[in-house]
Amino acid sequence: MITIGIDSGSLATKGVVLGDDKKILGSAIDLTGGRSRKSGERVYHQVLDRAGLSEQDVAFVVTTGYGRDNLPFSGKNVTEITCHAAGVHFLFPDVATILDIGGQDSKVIRIGNGGRVENFIMNDKCAAGTGRFLEVIAKALEVRLEDLGAISQQTDKNVEISSMCTVFAETEVVSLVAEDTPVPEIVRGVHNVIVERGEILLGKIGLVEPVAMSGGVALNIGVVKALEKRLGLELRIAENPQLTGALGAAVIARNLMEKR
């Protein structure tokens, strides 16, 4: 049975094809841009191509993410909270807590038996501590978003970024650059803001180990290391943490078909 999960996120659209033996047959990530429906369709066909399949081979598609309601091939849409729980449980069955930091929100999910969501909390109306925050800062520093993690590892020092607001933090970063503060120190300071936010969010639900991290920000080695140090634990992170939601959607699609 072939199932597909498509995660139409605020920054990126992700897709996963799950095969008969529960192996990932294909995956894709593309920028969402201004039209989530178009990027969703594009990723859907990309994953089919990569898996060497056609639409007729697919038993069921579950969509998730902010654009989940708007995809014509969707058999069912499920929130990313449920999908991240299913995806992480598929990869790490013993994980009890997930910290997911995506493009425009961050969330903590407590998982129960069978990957069921026991509880969750999302950040409030603020982009601080999310992928968007890093994107803005990377632009202000004139470095690539994907290089932030490595840059932060070039020093042990960090400056304190006092602003909680993304816009004000950007202004602060620009001022620090003007004062010739080394970029790696600024990046570490920015990572600390995300780590503090994540720690507070984890505290609200209650941290139960093992803890996994998912979402695009989990690709940033600087944030991951700083979080692990702060929390005093080792985070479980998928090979491609951006795909966890799409994978979970494909897993849910499979479970639904098995129940039929």
């Binding site: 929130t79 990313e80 909270i81 449920t82 969501v117 509880n119 969750f120 999302m122």
Partner: peptide
Amino acid sequence: KIRIDAFAEM
């Protein structure tokens, strides 16, 4: 909406 959807699913 996303929060309510997830809460209802849970």
